[in-house]
Design a protein around this nucleic acid. Sequence first.
DNA 1: ACCAATCATTGACCTGCATCAAAGTGCGCT
DNA 2: AGCGCACTTTGATGCAGGTCAATGATTGGT
Lengths: 253, 253
Amino acid sequence: MVTEGLRPPIPGPNAGHRQNPCLDSGHHVDCLHCRTRFLSVCSALDEAELNDLAQIVDPRCVSARSTLFSQGEEAANVFNITEGMARLYKLLPDGRRQIIGFALPGDFLGLSLSDQFSFSADAVNDMRICRIPRAKFAQQLDDKPRLLKRLHEMAANELMIAQDQLVVLGRRSAEERVAVFLIGLRKRFTAIHHLSPTIPLPMSRQDIADYLGLTIETVSRTFSKFFREKTLLNVPDGVRILDLDRLNSLAMR
Amino acid sequence: MVTEGLRPPIPGPNAGHRQNPCLDSGHHVDCLHCRTRFLSVCSALDEAELNDLAQIVDPRCVSARSTLFSQGEEAANVFNITEGMARLYKLLPDGRRQIIGFALPGDFLGLSLSDQFSFSADAVNDMRICRIPRAKFAQQLDDKPRLLKRLHEMAANELMIAQDQLVVLGRRSAEERVAVFLIGLRKRFTAIHHLSPTIPLPMSRQDIADYLGLTIETVSRTFSKFFREKTLLNVPDGVRILDLDRLNSLAMR
DNA sequence: ACCAATCATTGACCTGCATCAAAGTGCGCT
DNA sequence: AGCGCACTTTGATGCAGGTCAATGATTGGT
């Protein structure tokens, strides 16, 4: 089954009634009752506008480790994430990798609307996305000023996040980097699901290392230290924060 | 004199006839013949629209080392840079500083339109800027979809630059960082002035270090190494590239 | 249930850059 | 010209995190 490995769907107004969107491709698309409607770029749209969008979106499943798009590739589509996680990264010619972000439900890929992707994206776990032809989306932007405004707001937010990450990579110790990463991830998950004491970590240690500008060994040692000193508890597929104060003081801003 | 320390004005259509914009405050503002018109957000505007903007902009001089705005401060204004250079930075509570960018003529500060500044900005050398009340600018955005589109394009470009810098800070050696910095700065100056063999470096070594996530000593040693091996030549207020191939191969992407 | 492959952890050692310290250089001011 | 100050360079030393290597833990395939 394609959805194997997905964490259970978050209970919502239509929990249990949701059809598998992978089967919907080319058929009726229900943007109106989308779980990520108010998280995503779609929050700028009313019912009628949402219907326009529904005509051009193609909801799809993406299985773990498969590619959404690659750096330099023609950007034929833009993407709205509805479930799962993607890693966004850049590669240097010699193979060094920097993960520039992890994309979660509600995130939009293709904010810049440029004709080539400036980074690569692939699925960390099984995902669901809405694929939208870029040209058609750009058309919608021309018709719907509130959509453009929302897109700009999201781009500005991404810019702020990237600038915060510059501080992390330029000026922070390994311990601080891991703390900032966990606090940030927790905050993002909280905005999507409800607050949970456990932070799921579907990405590998290598991914975390490539995101934080460290090596896998340093990340592993830092987690071990946090476990040893009871700042974190190691749980299946994630960690539980035991000492939030400690983590916050490391992540101070 | 307030403009002391400014590099000589770039020859342009109105070179030599230009009034000191510092004296224009509150008087007639000539956006139409602005040297940075086609570099800046204003490139989206026709003559009539430019006149609307001229009604709300306040051109000002900012002398070297003075503050444009500080992180956390109420963002009452947004800024268009017309001359000089600003450093944009974030501070950690313990004083560590990360410079997130250097702003040049044509750059817009306040892309996010949020009500607080998420970073601080001050003048590296004497500058000229156009100050615009944020609320009035936002109004213009509602009236002028092309202006919003241009703003979004600029924000998307800044985002790409920030993401490139994440790779630099996360995965590159000191030597590579300095090379990338110089190649990037050269490219930006070329877009503003004409191509010059000399790269002006009005910022201090400490600024460069805080931009590249290094210490002042490492930056200094790296420059010395480049001078010694004849990759660069040390000239007053900047450097000249002697071996572009060498620099490019270090900055490879 | 078993094996192979991948991923994570841990230890020993190394190195690139940071830190600490001391000259050297340039510039404004009187 | 001479002084003071801020900035830069250079050298000596230290260490956080990288590298190399081995072992454990998980996972997927048959």
